[in-house]
Design a protein around this nucleic acid. Structure first.
Lengths: 226, 226
DNA sequence: TCATCTTTTTACCGTTTGGTCAACTAAACG
DNA sequence: CGTTTAGTTGACCAAACGGTAAAAAGATGA
């Protein structure tokens, strides 16, 4: 009766055997992508608990049981999104070049991070939601992926700082402030929309943020009489 | 049968007649405070949809129907918290003194805002959660209370800027960056705990943040050769 | 003491939620 | 073609949810 592996299970668990990668079909790739796209919409807007499978299903144009055919459950969809997100999210930090011009490297990092928040506000909000709630599903990933990168970037900035290439700043709090200021424009968009005038959110606010942050971090990082 | 106002209704709707303020009893004050305290815990940790009346009830040490005796519903509890929060949240900005020393005023504002985030992280997260989800319940309050204050503060900073008392910065984005950097330590505490080492979150990180932000905004705001 | 008003609880209701099941349809392949 | 497999769906379920009804229990004051 219960023949194991009697049929291919697209909703493969995370601990699937590495050897048995049955190469997903075109339909599977398309529908998984649809589901993740819809889930990003719903999760980023309502948070994990606030999102329902029915909402995701309707937004994806699929039935709820069909969604559970591709993913083992609500949590697996969420975790999948977070894993996908983490990679692209860390890329700007990875591109910090130890051999580049320190000030340019950091200002470029600020610019990339801001562009990323503006281009992918849903991803930013999804991440913010998860962290706000204590990172219950992404904590291991923070420890394994984010922390090593954060440590090495901090060490690099500290070296630049001690060498006098940039001002004497606390590297870790500098990174925090860059994350905070850039992601703020995505995460608090509802507030900014009210304060800047709703008609304006995409236009002047965008350029204004870039110009302000560039100038701010130029002042913060330019070495000078202390 | 349906005698209106046949019994005092502690769960008074918001649009209650102003003349009929029956002066709440000691029990009412104590239990309402318990409920709001418990609700702040639960809402700030799980978000609006993620929080349940049963959780709030258990945390408050009351039964669920008893909670609904004091508040008309889940949403009313949430809105009450947001209203209470908004007042104290805006106070540091209100204390900006047009007649003070501009640089000192702004650095003091940064310090106060950071202290507030560190002293009331649950309030900060409650607010962040609400904004993140599009401010569905607090939008009117943002328009009526936050925006006027934001506009006048921006105007004041602009005047200081044009007068040369501080550097030439965009006042509105300056305020955004102050909000972002200070609230970040409360809202992203889970992330910061991982990156700074969990044992450290309350100690060095606290002082480090204050020192870093003071130095950063000193550099940003000190007028000098552009 | 009794009568009245406030507070609390027990039992319940309708809806929503994540998830399952068995049957159905559509491809793939010989 | 037929058979096997992949994909899809309507019907359903148990649990959790916000909220209600009504009556019990406490407090209050004459």
């Amino acid at each position: 009766m219960s023949d194991p592996a009697k049929s291919r299970d697209p909703a493969q668990r995370s601990a699937a055997k590495p050897a048995s990668a049955p190469q997903p079909s075109r339909i599977q790739m398309r529908n998984r992508a649809r589901i993740l796209e819809a889930a990003l919409d719903v999760f980023s807007q309502h948070g994990y608990r606030g999102a329902t499978l029915d909402q995701i299903a309707e937004s994806a144009g699929l039935s709820k049981p069909n969604i559970l055919y591709y993913f083992a459950g609500k949590e697996e969809i969420h975790v999948t999104l977070l894993h996908q997100l983490m990679d692209s999210w860390l890329e700007p930090l990875r591109q910090l070049d130890p051999d580049g011009v320190p000030l340019d490297e950091l200002l470029t990092y600020v610019r990339r991070k801001l562009e990323m928040s503006q281009a992918f506000p849903r991803e930013s909000r999804l991440f913010a939601n998860e962290i706000l709630q204590g990172a219950p599903r992404i904590a291991p990933l923070l420890e394994e992926e984010l922390k090593p990168l954060f440590d090495s970037a901090s060490a690099l900035i500290d070296r630049w700082s001690r060498a006098g290439a940039i001002a004497d700043v606390d590297a870790r709090h500098l990174i925090f402030s860059i994350w905070a200021t850039t992601q703020h424009y995505a995460d608090f968009e509802a507030q900014i929309g009210v304060l800047m005038g709703p008609a304006d959110t995409g236009g002047e606010a965008r350029r204004g943020a870039g110009a302000y942050l560039a100038e701010m971090y130029r002042k913060v990082l330019t070495p000078g009489r202390g």
